[in-house]
Structure formats: C-alpha cells, structure tokens
C-alpha cells in the first residue's frame, strides 16, 4: 500500500479531510452532519494517513496518544451539559450566545456538546485502530 502516489496523496488528504470533518461537525445543527459523523471522518483521515506512511508517522503528527481525546471530549460534553445548572436552568438546557458568530452561525452549549462527541469519537476510533495495528 505504500506507493508514492498514495503517500503523496495522503499527506494532502489528511488536512483536507480534517477540515471537511470539522465542517461537517459545525454545520451539523442545520444540515446533515454532526459530532458522530465528523469524528468518524476525522478518524478515517488519520487511518488513511497511517496506512500510507506507517503508524509511527501518524502518531508523530498527533503528538499525543489519541486516548487522551476521550477524557477531554467527555469533559467538554459534561461541561456543556451541566453549564445550564449555573444559570438556573435544568440539566442540558440549551444556552446560546446573543449574536451569531461569523461562518459558524449561532453558538450555544449544544455546539460544545457536539464538539465533545466529536473528540470522543476520534479518540475511541483511533485508540482502537492504533492499538490493533501496533500489536499485530
């Protein structure tokens, strides 16, 4: 699988796919997409890269163990979930900023929750795939 073309392509594909994944994530509230799909696409991006360049290279790009994304994502989702409690709402009530942010649109706690989901999905998928390819 480690052909030159695949290698070259994958190094361009990675940032592109990641960007696409984030795009999917952010537009999820209005159009098809969201944290789950975005996370999966991002994970696939890394997997393709690792197929082309070997797992060590890919891990070099990420710099830390993907497993760490899981607690970060869980924490973010949890914060988004309990934030309304501090403003007097019930658990998981949506909180929204007054004004829309350019490009992204309305920003609210739901978005942070979705980002949390995104991070967890990336973390889980990469942990699984990397662990397997390393031990085989």
């Amino acid at each position: 699988m480690k052909t030159i073309i695949f290698k070259t392509a994958s190094s361009y594909l990675l940032p592109l796919l990641l960007l696409f994944a984030i795009f999917i994530l952010l537009r999820g509230h209005y159009l098809p997409g969201g944290g789950f799909v975005g996370g999966l696409i991002a994970a696939i991006a890394f997997v393709i890269h690792s197929f082309a360049n070997g797992i060590e290279k890919t891990r070099g790009i990420i710099k830390f163990h993907p497993g760490f994304l899981m607690p970060i994502g869980l924490a973010l989702a949890l914060i988004a979930a309990i934030a309304p409690l501090f403003t007097g709402g019930a658990l998981m009530t949506g909180l929204w900023f007054e004004n829309p942010v350019p490009v992204i649109g309305m920003v609210g706690s739901a978005l942070f929750f979705d980002i949390g989901v995104f991070l967890v999905v990336v973390g889980v998928t990469l942990t699984i795939i990397f662990t397997i390819s390393e031990t085989i």
């Binding site: 999820g28 509230h29 209005y30 159009l31 098809p32 997409g33 969201g34 944290g35 789950f36 994502g73 869980l74 989702a77 949890l78 979930a81 658990l91 998981m92 949506g94 929204w96 309305m106 609210g108 739901a110 929750f113 979705d114 949390g116 989901v117 967890v120 999905v121 889980v124």
Partner: peptide, 24 residues
C-alpha cells in the same frame, strides 16, 4: 426551542443529550 434545523442532530445533542452523553 433548540435553534437547530437538522432535527436528527438536534435530537442527539439537545433533546436526548443525556442519552448521547451515556453513549459516548
């Protein structure tokens, strides 16, 4: 209520957010 237009996503991250939380 949830300021989202993709209903499926709104259900996942807002209406049934607690379920999603457990899922992740």
């Amino acid at each position: 209520l949830a300021k989202g237009k993709n209903v499926v996503n709104v259900i996942l991250v807002d209406f049934r957010g607690a379920d999603t939380m457990v899922e992740i």
